[in-house]
Nucleic acid binder design. Structure first.
Lengths: 340, 340
DNA sequence: GACTGGCACTCTGTCCGCAGGAGTGCCAGA
DNA sequence: TCTGGCACTCCTGCGGACAGAGTGCCAGTC
């Protein structure tokens, strides 16, 4: 038995009311608050069907109905018309971003903005190194056998690592290393660099080979291994809105998940499709987040995507509003990056 | 009426039991679990005095007693013998720190270590810029009118800021700027730099004055305004141990406070005395943390202090253990920094 | 004077039972 | 296919009773 329009409308009404009130919604209250044009008895029948199909459930007999994860899913997929942001929200975004000075600043402001607007937990990934290109590599002598490698990318990220050299390196040699490395790597996508680094070592004169190998090792580590690592988080306190009820008793699992950068990156770092992605409750692979939903999207200058951002909240979430906000903020950050 | 030894002993017993069980402790249970050598009736009299003096209180008539903030204070000041770390803990610290590569790494590992060992929320401040010295300043051309200023300090911190120049800067001029800036500032304590920067501008040839002013502005911002800004946080999930009871109902105020870097820096950034500092409940100026305690201390290579670290938890906290751990970790981090 | 044993008192937490209310499921009729 | 009505279920809140824990106080002892 498929769902006709009225049943969908009933589902929408249930989701909207439940999101608003956090209380199981009954048939009578529904017909009072929405213009469904039928009696409560009819609605009851529809509800029975919706329940059978797994879209809603009763906490207990003779209670109202509550949407299931599947119900929210259907709501998001078929019943959500994206609401445009209010002018007030647009203005908030712009005001929040006045006078940014560098990438750190952009990321921190963005994450707070997202948290404030959505009233959820916000996560913003720094532009992923693997999607950036090297702008410049700098070598700064720290001591005779130590160099600081500083990499600046076209997305504004700056990464640094200490390089321990096997033997003292004269200044001229540092110069030489810096020149060679930049010649080979500047302007290259980080994803393409590993073979180039290998070539660098090969092409190096034997007497400098040792130094170059050290440098290459650290380069590869910086470029590849730690490449996705950074992100910013804000709005944890929003988890406590509405007590602890939205997360079946404890915030603990959620807070634990938020501590793991790896988990967060998985959540917002799915950059394949450029559309907004919504993961509801059980759809999250992470067990700790079974009672949470995540709305995420990619951002970047123009059409390219360099990182992800998103918010996390209870499954009982205002999806249309959240989706709209996440998108708008992502677009705005993209524009900001494009200007630099 | 002053407190004799036995009354203090009773207070200690109450604190220890309450910390262990989270339940108000009664006179009978006390004499059973501790060798006080007196009857429960005597203990009751002592308790009445302790209550009158404000060190303990009853949640309600005919309940056991619970320590007040003042009670914890007395306990910490007069009744705490620092327990040495167990060998297992020592080993944990060392194992945690094997193979650190740079400052970021040190800080992140430290904060997680602290959170794990104390089972509280841990905060670690990056070495404060104002207590560091400039090791090197690097200027990297990003475009014709934009330079990236990168500052490396002797504590290993790397800060960068974008500098917008009024007009295109030829490569030779960048060189010149870099040389001058380093000559003047390298090796200087950041706290001492502002007058030096001013001098830099003065001494500059008029034709380069404009560039130098831009650079100086950003330098001062980087050096002074944002100087205390960075820190790392871990273990938020530990707040949920023992439900929500330890924080009178909601984690909300605590989570909110943890979001404010300014607040956290105030908490752990009191570096005047090199001893460990304990703030209990109301002693925290921040209203949101009235139900929390903070144990903090400074760290740094040798005897100098470059930053603060600490933990935050419920007032019902194992103070001796926490204090010992915080100190040990601080000492260890200091040694680690001294090696670099 | 300090400590102890004993007793009355108080308050909490819990377990009932009960009534009220909300909401459902189902059925017969339009 | 929809509707009104009715019986049924289950939660919630309230009051009372009861056991348990803990105290305060008093009289007696060392």
């Amino acid at each position: 038995m498929s769902l006709d329009d009225r049943k969908l409308e009933v589902l929408r009404a249930i989701v909207e009311d439940y999101v608003k009130t956090r209380e199981p919604v009954g048939s009578k209250a529904l017909v009072e608050r929405h213009q469904l044009g039928v009696s409560s008895a009819t609605v009851r029948n529809d509800m029975a069907v919706l329940e059978e199909e797994g879209y809603i459930r009763q906490p207990h007999t003779s209670a109202g109905r509550v949407p299931t994860d599947a119900g929210y899913r259907l709501f998001v997929d078929r019943l959500t018309r994206i609401k445009p942001l209010t002018p007030a929200e647009r203005r908030a975004i712009e005001r929040f971003m006045i006078g940014v000075v560098d990438l750190d600043d952009v990321v921190h402001r963005t994450v707070r903005l997202l948290a404030t607007l959505t009233r959820q937990v916000a996560v913003v990934q720094y532009p992923s190194l693997s999607r950036s290109a090297v702008r410049h590599l700098e070598l700064v002598p720290i001591s005779t056998t130590r160099l600081m490698l500083v990499m600046i990318t076209d997305t504004g990220r700056v990464e640094q690592r200490l390089v321990e050299m096997p033997a003292p390196v004269p200044e001229g040699a540092v110069w030489d290393l810096r020149r060679r490395v930049n010649e080979k790597l500047a302007g290259q996508k980080l994803a393409d660099t590993p073979p180039l680094v290998a070539k660098l070592v090969e092409e190096c004169a034997p007497e400098h080979r040792g130094d170059m190998v050290c440098l290459a090792t650290v380069l590869l580590e910086t470029l590849v291994e730690r490449s996705e690592e950074r992100l910013a988080l804000a709005g944890t306190a929003n988890l406590t809105r509405g007590g602890v009820l939205d997360f079946q008793g404890t915030l603990r699992p959620v807070l634990e998940a938020l501590e793991e950068e790896v988990i967060l990156l998985k959540l917002i770092g799915d950059l394949e499709p450029s559309t907004t992605r919504v993961r509801i409750g059980d759809e999250n692979e992470i067990d700790n987040l079974r009672s949470a939903s995540v709305v995420s999207t990619g951002y970047g200058p123009g059409a390219t995507i360099v990182g992800g951002l998103g918010v996390l909240g209870p499954t009982r979430m205002d999806y249309p509003g959240t989706i709209a906000t996440v998108r708008a903020v992502a677009r705005y950050v993209g524009d900001l990056l494009a200007q630099n």
